[in-house]
Amino acid sequence: MSNKKYLVGFPETNFSSLALEQNAQLSEYLTVQNSPLLFGCRTGICGTCLVEVEGDIIPPSSEEREVLEVLAPGNKKARLACQIKLTGDLKISTLNS
């Protein structure tokens, strides 16, 4: 079984792209040293890690979708980084609330 890796990039920042294994949970690998993202609760309810994502990932769960409807209504690229499992290359930008 191959350990497929995908790139996670942070456009318009000084952070380098990271190569992470398929299905990696971003909240387990991203830190203040290697990404511009901050994580609060890590359970998908606080909204600290609200981001815009470009790339192929699985759709949000119904619980995540409820939070996104409050924090970023109408933004189809909005996601909670703590809930993302890596299934393809991504570009992630922070969202200023």
Rank of each mutant, 00 (worst) to 15 (best):
G40T: 09
N14G: 11
V53I: 10
Y29N: 13
D89E: 04
A19D: 15
Y6C: 02
A78F: 05
T87E: 06
F15V: 01
R65G: 13
F10E: 00
V8S: 00
I57P: 03
L18E: 07
L30I: 08
C82M: 04
N96T: 13
T87H: 10
G74I: 08
S61I: 11
K85L: 15
L38I: 08
K76E: 15
A24D: 14
L38F: 11
L95R: 09
S61Q: 13
C82T: 02
A24F: 10
F15L: 08
R65C: 12
R79A: 04
P59D: 12
P11N: 05
N23K: 04
T13H: 06
I84G: 00
L7D: 04
K4S: 10
P36E: 06
S62E: 15
I45N: 07
N14H: 14
Q83V: 02
L50N: 01
F15D: 01
T43H: 12
E52A: 15
S35I: 03
R65T: 15
K4M: 15
Q33K: 14
N3M: 08
I84D: 00
T48L: 05
P60D: 07
L68S: 00
C82Y: 01
S35F: 10
I92W: 03
E12K: 10
D89G: 03
R42I: 04
D89S: 01
L80C: 05
M1E: 11
S35G: 03
T94L: 11
F15S: 02
V51P: 00
N23H: 15
P59S: 14
Q22E: 15
S27G: 03
R42Y: 05
G44D: 04
L26N: 00
G40C: 06
S97G: 12
N3D: 15
M1D: 11
K4Y: 14
T94C: 13
C41F: 10
L80H: 01
P60F: 08
S61A: 10
N14I: 06
L68W: 02
L50S: 00
M1S: 07
A24Q: 06
V8P: 00
I45P: 01
E12P: 09
T87N: 12
A81V: 01
Y6W: 14
Q83S: 05
A78C: 07
N3Q: 14
R42G: 02
I92Q: 01
G40L: 07
R79H: 04
T48E: 07
K5Y: 06
K5H: 07
S93Q: 08
V67L: 13
M1N: 11
A78D: 03
F39L: 09
T43D: 14
M1G: 12
E69V: 08
L20M: 03
L37P: 00
Y29M: 09
S61P: 11
G47Y: 03
Q25M: 12
L18F: 06
G9I: 02
L7E: 08
L18M: 08
N23L: 09
E66H: 08
V8M: 08
Q33Y: 09
K91N: 14
I57V: 09
C49K: 00
T48M: 09
L90H: 00
T87A: 11
E21G: 12
E21V: 09
P11R: 09
G9L: 09
G9W: 07
K76A: 13
C49Q: 02
Q25A: 14
N75G: 07
E54V: 12
K77S: 12
L26R: 00
C41R: 01
A24M: 07
P73Q: 08
S93K: 14
N14E: 13
C41N: 05
